[in-house]
């Protein structure tokens, strides 16, 4: 089973040289820590920055320079600043190659719910609806089951949707799965020490596990 860092490390392996990548809040933010130094990747922050650098050293925090999670960050040589409309313009126009975000539920047809629990929690969708409506390459980073032990990989989402038919890949503490174009979760890899049976038990939606499912290799 993977911890949050493990999920982030596995997702980092999906990023290719030359990519512009948008990282959501939570586990996706950690992915930045595991990009190989040799790789040329530019991180987009939807509050208006291309080229997110590391967190600042103590004393160097700049209140004017934050990421979409409102954390203080630094910029890199070659960073660019723009307004919020242009930020979502480049997302809508598919200039961003990969979007990594969290979710509360994902359905076997690629629907995602991530912004609201009616009557309990209303934080808002932020930029997630814009991202999932336009991005062609979306990976969800999340826990396989919720705090109550219920599967978050469902046949149909129960919570209000963020977007439809959009998620392509999911990485959880248990597995890497693709969403099949015809519907269903295709099991690609198991987390170290996790059996196909465990993954099947934690997946409420249709799971396709054909042949020998390899264990993840994480560098």
């Amino acid at each position: 089973m993977l911890d949050k860092e493990g999920i982030a490390k596995r997702i980092a392996m999906e990023i290719k040289d030359g990519y512009y990548v948008n990282l959501g809040i939570g586990i996706p933010t950690l992915v930045a820590n595991y990009l190989p130094e040799s790789m040329d990747v530019v991180l987009q922050s939807e509050n208006g920055l291309l080229g997110i650098g590391p967190f600042p050293f103590v004393g160097d925090e700049d209140p004017d320079t934050i990421n979409a999670g409102k954390q203080t960050i630094t910029m890199l040589p070659g960073s660019a600043i723009f307004d919020s409309a242009m930020s979502f313009g480049m997302i809508r126009a598919k200039k961003v190659n990969l979007t990594i975000l969290g979710a509360m539920e994902v359905a076997e047809n690629g629907d995602i719910a991530s912004w609201k629990i009616p009557g309990k929690m209303v934080k808002g969708m932020g930029g997630a609806m814009d991202l999932v409506a336009s991005a062609e390459n979306i990976i969800v980073a999340m826990q396989h089951v919720n705090k109550a032990g219920e599967s978050k990989l469902l046949s149909k989402c129960t919570l209000p949707l963020t977007g439809i038919n959009c998620v392509k890949k999911i990485v959880t503490e248990l597995a890497v799965l693709d969403i099949l174009p015809e519907g269903g979760f295709k099991l690609l890899e198991r987390a170290p020490g996790v059996s196909v049976e465990q993954i099947r038990n934690a997946t409420a939606g249709k799971l396709f596990a054909e042949g020998d499912i390899p264990e993840m290799v994480i560098f």
């Binding site: 939807e46 919020s84 930029g127 977007g163 439809i164």
Partner: peptide, 27 residues
């Protein structure tokens, strides 16, 4: 959606009455 919010402001400043966006389709 955040992009919708930003672009509805932009439209006002550009003198355009409306925009089309995919954000929120199906929700």
């Amino acid at each position: 959606p955040q992009g919708t919010l930003a672009t509805r402001c932009m439209a006002a400043g550009y003198g355009m009455p409306a925009i089309f966006t995919p954000a929120g389709i199906g929700t």
